[in-house]
Amino acid sequence: MRKKKYLENKMKNKSKINKISLNVRRHIVNASFESNKSSHIGGSLSMVEILSVLYGSILKYDLKNTNWDDRDRFILSKGHGALALFSILHEVGFINQKEFSTYQQNESEFISHPIMNTDYGIESSNGSLGHGLSMGVGISLAAKLKNKSFRTFILMGDGECNEGSVWEAAISAPYFRLNNLVAIVDRNKMQNDGQSKEIMDYSSFEGMWNSCGWEVVSIDGHDIEKLYFALKHDKNLEKPKVVIAETIKGKGISFMENVSSWHHGKLTKNLFEEAIQDLK
């Protein structure tokens, strides 16, 4: 009986997260088209399930008190994924429709990269790559010094991990025993100039994190169940965790999947309509 109930809840939650993911993809496509400008749409679509699981069942936050001291902290270190961040924040209620519709308009708070504003649930300004993890180390250290139990999540790109500063931070987090820190890598295997393996390949990406002393988990980054179990709190963990989420750039829109030019692209009316058909 208990098992049946558990399974029912799990299925209910799964369908909730699926619904969030679908809506977030629609927000991304709509806002991108409405802005009438190019946007980082491919790398936004690859991280949708990661954000849906985080905001749908992992992160502690309070919409009525967005600066709540005990909230979990989330930083989008791959700042060019801002459209996906604004979309999830819009979906869960941090950003209203009117605000969201200013995306990429003159003097908007919502541009191609996040601008720190905790009222909207945006913890950090990003855009320059390789900054988030160091800040995450600082925030997690602060939590330890203040005896706070919140966790800090940093979402990076695999291309972003070309930056040396990522590895300065990666070395330091296990040394400081930051088991309250979770790094997530959206490993869509593509970057600005094309396929990562043809630009700067890693001989062993998992091995690099391993040798720095992280708990390393590699999963399908579009599987919400696997994401949930990888991201949920593990009291017994004594070190920081990195979740390497294998994803598809442009996921969900057939003509964008694994197509390099959609790293930063503009939707025509025809393409927009085609994209919306994929999200029925």
Partner: peptide, 26 residues
């Protein structure tokens, strides 16, 4: 002792860590 943090020879990381600490009130 507990208020001194040595980050190793990594100035970029030091600024980032300091920013994270400052964000939380230090």
């Amino acid at each position: 002792k507990e208020r001194f943090i040595n980050v190793g020879i990594a100035e970029q990381n030091m600024i980032g860590i300091a920013a994270g600490l400052a964000k939380e009130g230090f």
